[in-house]
């Protein structure tokens, strides 16, 4: 499937700030289910952004605005060709061994509540893949999709207690539960096509991956109860949201920030099926 992505983020400040810097994890790396036809990132200045690869294999860009300003913007525009691999991620850059992704992080700590939840979800099932599918459903059942009930710093245990959250919370709970079961798991940020209805979203999508011996890393999107298919564009991975966050930034100056995000994922013209 050929997908077109347009992602625009505008920051506005109520008074000028002197300096801003951002880490952008907004560029996919190719793998067996993803072929990149074109991808372009543009920041506030005309010069191209300096790119590097982080320790998790993600492409990161450094965006700095080193002069007084009261707004700045980041644009992403790209076109990719995707294939359904039933969630299995093959030939993606993957510099760290699965074992690394077994340890808890601040947002995915394994609490007694999460441990009990995980054990109950997979009780009686032994096949690794079946257990993970079961767990994915259980996460979605336990956490209702509701905006505004959680925040970016909400951890897995809090999301489970709240019983409501967004895709980030579903991913964190799934990851923490996997680790409780001894399965390496990690966070994925990226884009999702949801149909040709010209709809705009206010955020990227997030899901998770679990390591299955024999298969490798397999994606699970608990928010939608599916393994990622050709509708998914995988951008960055990390042990939790913080490691895979699409944007992490800092400013110098005292100002109230207002952020406006527009994400549009469409089926590319001329490639309708």
């Amino acid at each position: 499937m050929r997908l077109n992505i347009r992602h625009r983020t505008v920051y506005r400040y109520d008074r000028p700030i002197a300096y801003a810097i951002q880490t952008l994890r907004l560029t996919p790396s190719p793998h067996d289910g993803l072929h990149i036809l074109s991808w372009r990132l543009r920041g506030e200045t005309r010069r191209p952004l300096t790119a590097s690869t982080d320790g998790f294999g993600n492409v990161v860009h450094c965006h700095t605005v080193n002069h007084p300003h009261d707004s700045s913007a980041v644009f992403v525009e790209g076109e990719v060709e995707t294939q359904d691999t039933a969630g299995v991620v093959r030939n993606a850059p993957d510099p760290l061994p699965p074992l690394y992704f077994l340890q808890p992080t601040p947002l995915t700590g394994v609490t007694p509540r999460i441990d009990a939840f995980a054990q109950e979800a997979v009780g009686g099932i032994s096949a690794p893949l079946d257990r993970l599918h079961q767990l994915m459903g259980a996460v979605r059942d336990a956490v209702d999709w509701q905006l505004g009930r959680t925040a970016v710093h909400t951890d897995a245990d809090e999301a489970l207690a709240e019983g409501a959250g967004v895709c980030q919370d579903h991913a964190h709970l799934f990851i923490a539960a996997c680790r409780a079961l001894g399965t390496p798991a990690r966070y994925v940020s990226g884009y999702l096509w949801t149909g040709n209805h010209n709809e705009e979203f206010e955020a990227n999508h997030a899901w998770s991956e679990a390591f299955v011996p024999g298969l490798g890393w397999v994606g699970f999107d608990p928010a939608n109860r599916v393994c990622p298919n050709e509708y998914y564009v995988r951008c960055a991975v990390g042990p939790d949201y913080r490691g895979a966050a699409p944007v992490r930034g800092l400013v110098r100056g005292e100002a109230v920030e207002e952020m406006e995000v527009q994400v549009r994922v469409t089926q590319a013209a001329g490639a309708q099926q």
């Binding site: 690869t53 982080d54 320790g55 998790f56 510099p95 760290l96 061994p97 074992l99 690394y100 077994l102 340890q103 042990p239 490691g243």
Partner: peptide, 14 residues
């Protein structure tokens, strides 16, 4: 090594 708090994944392949 990998679960040591001193292990810094950001340094991988740098």
């Amino acid at each position: 090594v990998l679960h040591n708090s001193m292990f810094t994944p950001e340094m991988q392949d740098l």
